[in-house]
């Protein structure tokens, strides 16, 4: 019986007059990779930001394991430690080296000793293949390397679930592969992941479940096979066809 790590019930987010999404329901089971796709402006990124409480939803509940994190009086800092987040624009701390970026949460949040933190951080950097870049600053790294440091930084906190907000959208085509490779490995290692992406190759190959969102609603969700080969709705078929066409071309050009 699969164990849910993340349970989202009737989630609603409104900015002013603008309804981003309404009554959204989603469950993510332990070890699963859920890929969220959909046109831009659909609320995918906002959904991720609600999950780690960077923005507060207007209504609805989110549970992380058995803890309702949207409940009043929740210690947000405590919750965020357990939810890793990888951003589209990497958002590394520019004044710190790769090692410093990964270590900051360990020393300041987990209160590890300098030595312990360095050891753990180096381990995470090797996991993303960047141990030899530990002393480089973000400005000295390529986009792909920066994003891998971003992943290592999130992993170092030993999160229950990792959120990826279009992790490869800001990368040159030839740098996308190295980031996807790290993510693929993570998924195989059993990390629970929620990934917003347009990388259909990754979705098809790695996702346990694909969720198609549009205009603040989940249109359809299912296994990659169901979604790509037997979608229930025409809109799903249409979107997947378009996006595969578009990104498939880009992937070929990059080869």
């Amino acid at each position: 019986m699969p164990k849910p790590i993340l349970t989202i019930k009737n989630l609603t987010k409104i900015y002013g007059q603008n309804v981003i999404f309404q009554n959204l329901n989603l469950t993510v089971n332990e070890g699963d990779t859920v890929v969220i796709i959909g046109p831009s402006g659909t609320g995918k990124s906002t959904l991720l930001r609600c999950i780690n409480l960077l923005t507060r939803p207007n209504e609805g509940q989110i549970w992380l394991d058995d803890l309702e994190i949207t409940a009043k009086g929740t210690d947000e800092d405590q919750v965020r430690q357990h939810i890793g987040m990888v951003f589209q624009n990497f958002l590394l701390f520019n004044h710190l080296t790769a090692l410093g970026n990964v270590k900051l949460g360990l020393t300041k949040v987990k209160k590890m000793s300098e030595e312990e933190a360095t050891k753990k951080a180096m381990h995470e950097l090797s996991r993303v293949g960047l141990a030899d870049r530990a002393n480089h600053y973000p400005g000295q790294l390529s986009g792909g390397q920066q994003q891998r440091v971003g992943i290592a930084r999130a992993l170092a906190m030993d999160p229950r679930v990792m959120l990826f907000d279009e992790p490869t959208s800001a990368l040159d085509p030839e740098l996308i592969g190295e980031v996807l490779e790290v993510m693929r490995k993570l998924a195989l290692d059993g990390m629970t992941m929620v990934v917003v992406t347009h990388e259909m190759g990754f979705a098809r190959e790695v996702a346990d479940r694909i969720v198609f969102m549009e205009k603040g609603h989940i249109v359809e969700e299912g296994s990659p096979d169901e979604m790509f080969n037997h979608p229930k709705f025409d809109r799903t078929r249409e979107f997947l066809w378009k996006i595969t066409e578009l990104y498939g071309k880009k992937e070929k050009e990059a080869e």
Partner: peptide
């Protein structure tokens, strides 16, 4: 803005 958000996402308090 972004840097603050990234720091909070790692689990740092606002002050940290």
């Amino acid at each position: 803005g972004d840097q603050l958000m990234a720091a909070r996402a790692v689990g740092l308090s606002r002050l940290q």
